[in-house]
Design a protein around this nucleic acid. Structure first.
Lengths: 307, 307
DNA sequence: GCCGCGCCGAAAATATCTTTCAGGGTGTGA
DNA sequence: TCACACCCTGAAAGATATTTTCGGCGCGGC
């Protein structure tokens, strides 16, 4: 984190320290075939690849040096040299730290205890990857925009719609004006009302959901500050986003649809946004939170025991 | 050239992985003045040195490249390149080792990066705790009931309402008849329709939410199989629950409302239920999942590039 | 004071990494 | 169906980084 370059234009993208496996999964879909081979080799055996030179890795993956360098660039490093360094770090972490654990997928005949263990592990992994890959500069910018917004609209459909609602509920609790839209038509008609100083947030894992992109585009063109929460930082939705917050993409499969693991990462991002805003507006947020808690008290029955 | 084979027979010592600081101290007495300066710099700030080239490190220590290489050799590495790799690994290890220090609560003035780390850590903890505390027998029973249910009603209000909707969405996707109720009146009027063989699920963290307990009670009294997903296994809601699924309760505080961490555990339970049911009804669930995926395809825009 | 020993750094030699450029494949539009 | 354009891909040239070589210089012994 203390990297030398203070540089800093728009998106310097800090070289991932240990969020590499996550980044590979996140960016893999936007890679060409050859680059995917390289990325796969790297994610598969960080230690082994760290011991290889560009030429070695190129030969191993049956590609050329140029492709290896290109892949390193795509992953956010200045060149292969730095990727190799990060790889060595990752290898060390893996060796010393946690066990590789359960790498297998969920099978149809897995006992229920295994299902629990695998799902829990997977979601933990998603959280760790998302946290590691989250661009705190973008996050801070989004928080600032939210904290000062006149109103905030959040777009999401399907599973992401629930995440949108979750964010809205939280923001309302601290006194902010927020609304979640899952109806594409209403979303667009509302987006037209937005103006500079307002905030629009689109939540979509694939980044290609037209029903969510469209209102964000409208909001963007009306001058609102736009934020995209997506698992694909190069997807269409980011075209209209001032700030992009990337969630991790975990393995998915037949019994484990994308919606399941993506949701976990999205919720973490949403929580971060919420806490960030609550910090910024603490004087107003704290009493608002207390008040909303108080207001619900009478709807709870006394517990048999306990506090 | 020598990169490939570790060569052989009488290799005196494999490159130290992390025992570098110790090695420096051990070998320091046998070093020349210049080499000591290099070794000291390396032991002092592995991360910083890993970012430097031979020339950079030589300048930093006021020595020459040759000396740096000689030092690397003395420490047991083939050359500076490999020392640097080990250094990067060491730095990564040190950094990750520092991570568990985030046991403290989120403060108002925490930098955003800390917020992300703390939230992620907390939610991971919640997942681990929930997975560990989940009664697989109860879970299996609930899955069996769900898989054979004529219809399923899920009750939840507030943040838990979103979890209820999440479960409903999933069950619908695999062809089960499910409905989420967050309106207490409608929930009760629907609960009256339930009969043996049907399933009712109540989701409430505190276990004391009257709006959720009431419909579950009605369902229970009408002979439906009832399930409670709650953080308090001894709370009122469990009175009317045939099966109780316990979620973990993480720390909460002013800036971290209960809704945030409880939701994570609830979603894990919901995911487990879903996967469990999908396993049991695989022959019907798999094509249903595929179909729902297919149905959405045309609502996605093409990504900028693809595999 | 002279000599030998070995540490030290500048510069050459080599390996490694990066960039450039042109060939080839793929999908698209006519 | 054919032609076009785009973009992936790898070979080789160009730039950096690392390693080796070699001669100077200080230090202690005689």
């Amino acid at each position: 984190m203390k990297e030398i370059f203070a540089g800093g234009g728009s998106a310097p993208a800090p070289p991932a320290p240990a969020a590499l496996a996550a980044k590979v999964r996140t960016l893999a879909p936007s890679m060409t075939r050859s680059m995917q081979r390289v990325a796969e080799a790297v994610a598969d055996d960080p230690a082994g690849c760290a011991a290889l030179t560009v030429t070695g890795l190129a030969e191993l993956t049956g590609t050329s040096e140029a492709t290896v360098v290109r892949t390193a660039r795509l992953l956010g490093y200045p060149g292969y040299r730095d990727l190799r360094l990060a790889l060595a770090g990752l290898a060390a972490q893996q060796q010393s730290g946690r066990a590789p654990a359960i790498t297998t997928d969920i099978a149809v005949d897995d006992p229920i205890a295994d299902v629990v263990a695998k799902l829990a592990y997977d979601e933990q992994q998603t959280l760790a990857d998302t946290a590691a890959g989250l661009d705190t500069v973008q996050l801070a910018a989004a928080v600032t925009a939210l904290a000062g917004a006149r109103r905030t609209d959040v777009y999401g459909v399907g599973a992401s719609g629930l995440v949108a609602q979750d964010l809205t509920q939280k923001l309302l609790r601290i006194g902010l004006l927020a609304h979640a839209h899952s109806d594409p038509h209403l979303a667009v008609t509302n987006a037209v009302q937005l103006r500079p100083g307002d905030v629009a947030i689109a939540i979509t894992h694939s980044g290609t959901t037209g029903d969510v992109i469209e209102p964000l585009r409208v909001a963007f063109e009306h001058g609102a500050t736009t934020v995209a929460v997506t698992g694909r930082p190069d997807s269409p939705v980011t075209q209209y986003a001032d700030h992009v917050l990337t969630t991790s993409t975990a393995r998915e499969s037949e019994l484990r649809p994308a919606a399941m693991s993506s949701r976990t990462g999205q919720l973490l991002v949403v929580d971060c946004l919420f806490v960030g805003v609550a910090q910024r507006t603490y004087d107003a947020a704290a009493p608002a939170l207390a008040a909303s808690y108080e207001a619900l008290a009478h709807r709870h029955r006394a517990a048999r025991r306990g506090p």
